[in-house]
Design a protein around this nucleic acid. Sequence first.
DNA 1: ACCCTCGGTCAACGGCCGTAGAATGAACCG
DNA 2: CGGTTCATTCTACGGCCGTTGACCGAGGGT
Lengths: 192, 192
Amino acid sequence: MSEPSARLTRAQQRRRSEDRILAAARRIFAELGYDRTTIRAVASAAGVDAGLVMHYFGSKDLLFARASEAPADELPGGTSDEVAEALLTSLGRRLTEEPTASLAVLRSMLTNADAADRYRAAGEPQLKHLTEAIPTPDADLRASLLSAIVHGVLAERYLLRLTNLADASPEQIVDLLRPCFQSLATPPPTAE
Amino acid sequence: MSEPSARLTRAQQRRRSEDRILAAARRIFAELGYDRTTIRAVASAAGVDAGLVMHYFGSKDLLFARASEAPADELPGGTSDEVAEALLTSLGRRLTEEPTASLAVLRSMLTNADAADRYRAAGEPQLKHLTEAIPTPDADLRASLLSAIVHGVLAERYLLRLTNLADASPEQIVDLLRPCFQSLATPPPTAE
DNA sequence: ACCCTCGGTCAACGGCCGTAGAATGAACCG
DNA sequence: CGGTTCATTCTACGGCCGTTGACCGAGGGT
């Protein structure tokens, strides 16, 4: 009996507004970073008043926290080769479907302590995972280098939009990086 | 008759103040990035008034431009192997002596268009150089990946200070990255 | 029909920032 | 010594921002 178009219950209204605010926040945080993003701009992009954003999310920090929530990729365990391939697959996916929420963190991490913490927290389990799979004493450094490479590529492709990286196909990037990842994940087979 | 300690000519005074302002600006821009750095903070760290900074440098943008001037590394030409090794050497040097001026750019490039342009401009000749030395059709992409790796490592070591990367010795990092760089700089010897 | 609830707006405050311009006093030059 | 230059400081303006609290009006339960 309810009209299919207009009428919304209060809960629906609220949810719709919150979703629109979060979507706008993710987009703008990812585009401008934490500092240059203003609550007023987010509100305006979401079609609401700035006061409403405060009302629902409490503060700019909390809004950023909510907007940058992103499920971390689960890397399956296994040999170092398998983990390297899994990391490549994860990178390939992130090169295919632009991960706006994690881009917000990536964009802001160099100038905002909260975002930096969030970045560390998101990367830590993956780092631990990688470290455990790499059978060398310097496993932790190797894992960190792998992480640095992944994020360096993502940053230059999506944030800096360096044309070479932005135009390349995910497969091409992944294929070029494969030997790179393998050399870091596995001890050199040359000496034995 | 001039005291060895105190008396300074006007030109000396000016030069001393400009140098102190530039040094403070480099440090703070590198630490906080463009946006969070205030002229007042730079002036205070340099022991002068904010008006003086404006008087000498004209604007915050111009101050940033002056503070982030850094001579680019010249990469010698040669085979792809040699260029890869030269890039590694350059990275090793930047891991040994912290390059404050380029850290200011690195810190700010994700949130400031000027810094992003400066970053592109600084990297472009090196990229061209790398591209010319790599004998594959996808040389430009390979060069960009190499650049992304270098800057990813620098950012995580100096800006994010991820402990694994911050504690490692430059030699260790360079050695681990060598096969990585070689695999990107040279076509795979497997297929032939 | 009543009234409480609550989504939403509006106007304002206090703070920090980049920047401009007047004022001061010492260094320089004749 | 007198006047000019110039390094330096002080004060203030206008703007943007995060945040607040009063206010409005339409649900929605009873």
